[in-house]
């Protein structure tokens, strides 16, 4: 089934409570992990039949934080608003002038963060999510684009050598900030480089913002497909000129509303999309990070996506 749930899925109410209890030293690490495992298994169950499953990244704090563990001398500093939401990320700040990935830690790091601590095997069909350059830059300090590129390149190379994977590169900055020509070139060069590592499909996922003024840039990038928030972008504008053969990850259910979309309305939406491109190239998804929703609402939206895509 062509449904993709990249990034962090919301923790269950039980896991939220267990995490709070753990922080207040009311339960042990083992008790917390048991709840987390139960939650991850439940989420795994919900994705039965998906071409690529997601671990839900239920132990992550945000998309950048895992990188603090493998970048040499990296500090986690103050809070910064996550775009225009009421969620905050912590800013990474390497203390070294030449921050780089400590590759000796990489295997254990990949297993912990991308294979849910060994719940999934390296050859499981999974969707992985990584930040793109501009996102990383926005939520870090004292680190140059060249160094960010090196860090993300090292990680992407390792992730893309694993079989049966889809890589979603997350970038809400497109449509939010005016990118310089240099930034565009850096992004393009990075994507071109990682595309040589394997046949792993790579999707560049935007979110939250109107990207119609950036389509010329986006559609010439060397990626397998694009993720578009259709609560910020009209179908007609996005799909006129959509490059042949590329995948489209459709942000079809909203992450800023708990209103569960009606199945008929979503069918109409997908019909309008598949009028332009072949159904096999379309993946249904959330319009932004699913974890902005409470778990119950995210589950209900996922159910309706499954109903529509089955």
């Amino acid at each position: 089934m062509n449904i993709l749930i990249p990034g962090q899925y919301p923790r269950s109410e039980k896991l939220v409570a267990a995490t709070r209890d753990f922080d207040r030293r009311r339960i042990t690490d083992e008790e917390l992990e048991a709840v987390r495992k139960e939650d991850a298994e439940d989420f795994m169950q919900k994705q039965t039949g998906f071409a690529y499953m997601s671990t839900g990244n239920l132990a992550w704090q945000d998309h950048l934080r895992p990188y603090a563990d493998i970048i040499t001398g990296c500090k986690v500093t103050g809070l910064k608003r996550f775009f225009e939401t009421n969620t905050f990320w912590k800013v990474l700040e390497p203390s070294s002038e030449t921050p780089a990935v400590d590759e000796s830690k990489l295997d254990e790091w990949v297993e912990r963060y991308f294979l849910a601590g060994g719940m999934y095997t390296p050859d499981s069909a999974l969707v992985f999510t990584m930040p793109f350059l501009y996102l990383f830059k926005r939520y870090s300090r004292n680190i140059e684009y060249a160094q960010i590129t090196e860090i993300l390149d090292t990680v992407a190379r390792r992730l893309m050598t694993l079989p049966e994977k889809m890589l979603v590169i997350f970038e809400p900055s497109v449509g939010f900030t005016e990118l310089t020509d240099e930034e565009r070139k850096l992004g393009r060069d990075f994507l071109a480089k990682i595309s040589t590592y394997s046949n792993t499909p790579v999707i560049l996922a935007t979110a939250f913002f109107d990207v119609t003024s950036e389509l010329e840039f986006l559609y010439t990038l060397p990626v397998s497909g694009f993720g578009i928030d259709f609560y910020a972008n009209p179908v007609e504008k996005i799909l006129q000129g959509f490059p042949m053969g590329k995948l489209l990850m459709t942000g079809a259910v909203a992450t800023d509303s708990t209103h569960v979309e009606e199945a008929d309305k979503l069918r109409d939406f997908f019909n309008s999309v598949t009028w332009h491109i072949d159904r096999s190239q379309v993946f249904a998804s959330f319009a932004g990070p699913a974890e902005l929703l409470p778990r119950e609402a995210a589950d209900a939206k996922l159910d309706v996506l499954k109903e529509v895509m089955s």
Binding site: P10, R20, Q61, K90, L292, P294, E296
Partner: peptide, 16 residues
């Protein structure tokens, strides 16, 4: 409707 993350492991109850 349930808890959503503010940051890290800090969550708040969000209404609709």
């Amino acid at each position: 409707r349930g808890h959503v993350r503010s940051f890290d492991n800090k969550y708040y109850r969000k209404a609709s």
